[in-house]
């Protein structure tokens, strides 16, 4: 297949198997900086999704005319323009939130996630595939932001999206909403995802091994002996 994964595969890929934060470690700066509470995290995710999808569409539309040595220039120009638009919209319609996010909205320009999607996918694929890829990646990024913000807001303030979920008696873990909390939560969640991946890989390996063993069991005892000794080694 010359085109690589199809649109729907790319869409699903972005959400979990190639999650931009947990798998590719891209765009760490907003992941750490704006996740002290759910609301700024969601706003940040929406702004990033807007920029990512718009930039992917534009780059995919002009991909036939792109000169290789000018492509990074075009990517940067496109991303910076859409980030400016997103920033102005936030300042006009969600003024309080734009004050909370502060410089992290313009910092979307240097979010490696967007430029890497332009380079890897949008500049080579049709608009349909590029949009599917961008939406999938945005959802994956949102998922990551939301998961971290959930842990930090619930433990740090006893609320979720501003609603109280833990009893008033809960002693707020101040550290969670402070910078160190961001590092600790992300580190532990990354380790959790990694552990889950390893556990699944091990189980899959065991399943393959048992299937092959049972197949070999039918063909003869000698092969089984050999298999067992190789497992011991």
């Amino acid at each position: 297949m010359p085109d690589g994964p199809t649109a729907s595969e790319r869409f699903l890929n972005g959400i979990l198997p190639e999650n931009p934060v947990y798998r590719q470690l891209l765009g760490m700066c907003p992941v750490l900086a704006v996740t002290a509470a759910m609301l700024p995290a969601l706003t940040m995710a929406a702004a990033t999704a807007f920029v990512l999808i718009s930039a992917n569409v534009i780059i995919s539309l002009i991909r036939g005319q792109l000169r290789p040595h000018l492509r990074i220039l075009v990517f940067t120009l496109t991303i910076a323009t859409f980030v400016t638009i997103a920033d102005r919209f936030l300042a006009a319609y969600l003024y309080e939130m734009s004050k909370v996010l502060g410089p992290y909205v313009p910092l979307i320009i240097v979010n490696c996630l967007i430029i890497s999607r332009c380079e890897i996918c949008a500049s080579k694929q049709t608009v349909r595939v590029a949009v599917a890829d961008a939406v999938g990646m945005s959802l994956g990024f949102t998922l990551a932001l939301v998961s971290i913000a959930t842990v930090r807001e619930v433990l740090g303030s006893g609320t979720w999206l501003g609603l109280r979920v833990l009893p008033e008696a809960w002693p707020n873990w101040g550290i969670m909403v402070l910078p160190p909390g961001a590092f600790l939560v992300l580190g532990l969640l990354l380790a959790g995802v990694e552990w889950w991946g390893q556990w699944r890989a091990e189980r899959a390996a065991l399943a393959v091994a048992s299937v092959s063993r049972s197949l070999q069991g039918q063909s003869g005892g000698a092969a089984r002996e050999e298999e067992a000794s190789s497992w011991k080694a």
């Binding site: 550290i175 961001a182 590092f183 600790l184 532990l188 552990w195």
Partner: peptide, 23 residues
């Protein structure tokens, strides 16, 4: 280091401790 923490995980945890120190 425990296997799942190797690489980015332990680095982030150490960074968290450094951030506490800087506070």
């Amino acid at each position: 280091v425990p296997r799942p923490l190797r690489g980015a995980g332990i680095t982030l945890l150490v960074a968290g401790i450094l951030a506490m120190a800087v506070m």
